[in-house]
């Protein structure tokens, strides 16, 4: 059993609103002194894969990350959680990547790593919330795609994937190879590495694959989204002013509140 987990390193999503700034020119968030972390759902994806391997008692896990030099930290974290291999894809060689391009790069890497039974992605990245890479990757690889999975188990030759739906839960059975996107759940909260593994991970070399290794030319990565114009990025004005709903008595205040609830479309 070979599992591949795709990780993205992002700007700390818990950065308090007061410290968050965007660069309107570059159209990206200003990093400042904020940390870089593994995108939360990718951590759930990694945990889901680790649990699947734990339960099976065997199997290999490879972590993939399309990212700049700093992304080795994310991969190192994955190594400290005992994935077997960690590979960085050199984002610097592929400027202006979008979801399609990322999916194509990942697909090229997965092909190089074949056989790969299940490929795990987070349901969406915690910065741009694209939510498309998993599905696009499945399409590239021509494999079935299962979304919002929170737990995976072997079921004979197949895999039983427990996933969230709008109404509750369902179990999807699917044969390998397949691609799944993972959502968060009590059951797949990321674990913390043992210190020994942490220190071992520091000594590991992390290979970086670029255009040459993957046999992919940067120019071939543009997908349909390249036609979209990224017009602007801005911080919406927040009116964290508490509006006191007044009134002579409880009834009047209640009427005000009902109006407010209708305004914010929950009523």
């Amino acid at each position: 059993m070979h599992l591949v987990v795709c990780l993205k390193q992002i700007l700390d999503p818990e950065l308090p609103p007061g410290e968050f700034r965007v660069d309107a020119q570059k159209k990206e968030a200003v990093r400042g002194s904020a940390s870089l972390v593994i995108s939360v759902f990718d951590e759930n994806a990694l945990e889901t894969a680790l649990q699947l391997r734990d339960a099976a008692g065997q199997g290999k896990i490879t972590a993939l990350c399309v990212g700049p030099e700093s992304a080795v930290d994310a991969l190192r974290r994955a190594l400290s959680l005992r994935v077997d291999e960690a590979i960085r894809i050199r984002e610097e060689e592929f400027p202006a990547l979008d979801g399609f391009g990322t999916a194509r790069l990942l697909a090229a890497a997965v092909r190089k790593l074949e056989p790969a039974d299940l490929v795990f992605c987070g349901r969406e990245a915690g910065d741009w919330h694209g939510a498309m890479v998993g599905g696009l990757l499945a399409g590239e690889l021509q494999r079935p795609f299962v979304s919002l999975v929170a737990g995976a188990q072997r079921a004979g030759e197949k895999y039983a994937l427990r996933r969230q739906t709008d109404e509750g839960w369902e179990t999807v059975e699917c044969a390998a190879p397949a691609v799944v996107s993972v959502t968060n759940d009590d059951a797949n909260q990321p674990r913390i590495p043992k210190v020994k593994d942490n220190m071992m991970a520091f000594r590991r070399q992390i290979p970086a694959w670029g255009a040459a290794e993957l046999g992919v030319a940067a120019a071939s990565l543009a997908g349909p989204n390249a036609a979209l114009e990224f017009a602007s990025l801005y911080v919406p004005k927040s009116e964290r002013q508490c509006q006191v709903l007044g009134g002579e008595n409880a009834e009047e205040k209640a009427a005000q509140m009902a109006k407010k609830l209708a305004e914010i479309q929950v009523l």
Binding site: P17, F20, V22, W128, A231, L233
Partner: peptide, 11 residues
Amino acid sequence: VYGGKANSELI
């Protein structure tokens, strides 16, 4: 984007 801290506009 960014967990609701910013908005992006695409054309």
